[in-house]
Design a protein around this nucleic acid. Sequence first.
DNA 1: CTAATAGTGTCTATTAGACAGTATGTT
DNA 2: AACATACTGTCTAATAGACACTATTAG
Lengths: 256, 256
Amino acid sequence: MSKVEYTTDLLIFGIDSRENDNLRSLPSKYLSILLVRRNKEPFKGQWSLPGGYVLENEIALDASQRILTKETGLKDVYMQQVGIYDSIKRDPRGRTISSSYMALIDRTLLKQEISMDACWFDIELQENEDNINIKLTNGIEKINYVVKRECISKKGNDYDYRVVEHSDLAFDHEEIIIRGIMILRDKVWNTDIVFDLMPKEFTIGQLKQVYSLILGKELVNSAFRRVIASKVIETGKMVKTGGHRPSVLCSYKERD
Amino acid sequence: MSKVEYTTDLLIFGIDSRENDNLRSLPSKYLSILLVRRNKEPFKGQWSLPGGYVLENEIALDASQRILTKETGLKDVYMQQVGIYDSIKRDPRGRTISSSYMALIDRTLLKQEISMDACWFDIELQENEDNINIKLTNGIEKINYVVKRECISKKGNDYDYRVVEHSDLAFDHEEIIIRGIMILRDKVWNTDIVFDLMPKEFTIGQLKQVYSLILGKELVNSAFRRVIASKVIETGKMVKTGGHRPSVLCSYKERD
DNA sequence: CTAATAGTGTCTATTAGACAGTATGTT
DNA sequence: AACATACTGTCTAATAGACACTATTAG
């Protein structure tokens, strides 16, 4: 019978696209996440997930939408629950629990600038045997940490990710981020959620880039095209994306 | 910046097995859930999920384990998070949020009686077009309610279940139960979690009964045996389960 | 005997992976 | 010309569904 502070933390994912040295090839894609620099204690000056208190007459989902709009200007973005983080000492100010949500956004829709204190960080995962090396960078600053993958239940196929080498991300956000990425990976494999990250029109090649980026593995070209064909509509428009054959622009086909 | 009460609600699932009229056939299986009768306001006298306050120096998972032990005597049972329920008016006493967990137990392990106020209810789902009719019964009392399946996002394959005909279950537990059942169904399909519901030794026929019970569909016999063969070990022991050929007892084979 | 489940085998349809081969742009 | 991707087609391997067939028990 104890009262707790109720907050929400947001995993805002997007896709960054940047030219690389080879002008003939497609621009490289990166999975990116929006972080904000904390302007007050605790963890003042450190990077953290956007988040905040859930207000008295608000549910966490609404609070998350409010914060997303504040940081990006976007409204009515589809979100899904990632989980609850309630470890006892996670906030030095006192018992605080966080209900975290994941939002997938199409970065090409961002007309206005994102909020002053916010910045996109590219995510790179290096996976060995049991450890995963997470590298976040905004081009200038780097945030690196290492987590260990631990099997909680073989029957449940359930894994936990324990941070074994810390960075200076605030709170327990290292843990929230890696779990969020793994849930994203799982959802991308099992649903059509990837299209929330894509612009309205895209080429099959770009879509394949994003899939293999998030899944962390190369995909077989012909098999990918076969499977994805039922989920997209060809717009008929062509685009030139580099020193090679132009591609048909497609868009997502909503099912029935 | 508002403090809330922090509670947990538990979905304790098990399998009930009962003889039926046909003595030649296997005993019928039922998916069952443990409910407790509330002995105080609000909702005094009504059935509800077991649950309670998360203590000051406790996380919700530990609170759930504590409550599970209190109700069933079982310890160290594997649990997984179902979600957070935080709608504003869900508890008439004031703002209260609930982190809910699901525990799958093997009812044959229950040596001691379950707690006085608790009772197992069999679950029956009748699914039509968009509506699902949920029927819970403990043999004497019946709790019936109807939920509507609503698609939140086609891309995310995400569904919400809104109660359209209420029963007298306490709080928002009607909603928690149906979501839990759907998560269970999903997990049973994608993981080996079903073995948490089974006794240590079982026949392939019994296992198939439980699978089709939870998935809500008949399974093809030969295909089922083919797939399940890699997950179980034959113990060599035989059992007679009715007026038909005896069966080999199997147990779960942990992977690598 | 019959009903009911246990267990095996085989054919077919579907799907994923491997990979070759052609097309068409830019550098 | 060389390179990089776009796109198609074909072979093969793996897997799921359909279904027939045998085995063995209790009623």
